[in-house]
């Protein structure tokens, strides 16, 4: 069980490294698909079927939109890392960030319980009162009964993002 997850996440790391270094943007996007579809298989292994269904469709739509953008603009990625002086500055910034995050990670990892030995605090109540909510799928019960106000907020965020896309892409209303 755990070994399959380790294999999947190593595959995802390799795919993401290739995707960030590909010469052609189209192959970069296709290699980015490895990360998303690896996440689908990992969700199935972790007993999260809702997430696996939604992630596979979302990944396909993301790839369609990204490929549509690249086909209509340009394929090439003409760049060399480590040529200018600003790259050195970026490298220093990256190392500082990695150091800070690593310190935080090393501090936090002691608090977490080991993989597979999680104890539920809040969700235990949700599972016990699932009959009261009337939903056999406990994830939907949480989304629309126990935390419905949260779902309303998430739907509003989605609406706002769509309004942002329509505003950025509109071609009228600006007088030249």
């Amino acid at each position: 069980m755990e070994i399959y997850l380790i294999i999947m996440i190593i595959l995802m790391i390799l795919g993401s490294i290739y995707s960030l270094h590909a010469k052609d943007l189209l192959s970069a996007v296709v290699a980015y698909g490895i990360v998303g579809f690896g996440l689908v298989i990992s969700f199935l292994l972790l007993y999260a079927p809702d997430l696996a269904i939604v992630q596979v469709v979302v990944e396909i739509i993301t790839l369609v939109i990204m490929i549509a953008v690249i086909v209509n603009t340009t394929h090439k990625d003409e760049k060399k890392i480590f040529t200018t002086k600003s790259s050195l500055v970026n490298l220093v910034v990256l190392l500082i960030f990695v150091g800070v995050f690593f310190l935080m990670f090393a501090h936090i990892i002691g608090v977490l319980s080991y993989f597979g030995q999680h104890t539920m605090r809040m969700a235990g109540v949700y599972i016990d009162s699932a009959y009261e909510a009337g939903s056999a799928n406990i994830v939907t019960g949480i989304l629309f009964h126990f935390r419905a106000y949260d779902t309303l907020g998430e739907a509003t965020v989605l609406f706002t993002a769509v309004i942002g896309v329509l505003t950025v892409l509109r071609q009228y209303g600006k007088k030249n």
Binding site: D50, I53, V57, I60, I61, G134, S135, N137, L143, F144
Partner: peptide
Amino acid sequence: YITVHGHLTPGGGFTGGVIMASAFI
């Protein structure tokens, strides 16, 4: 189907909505 059976089987409004949008696309 996924949307309407969201409270019984895996799925729900978010999942079913994305699948319906993929049919449009």
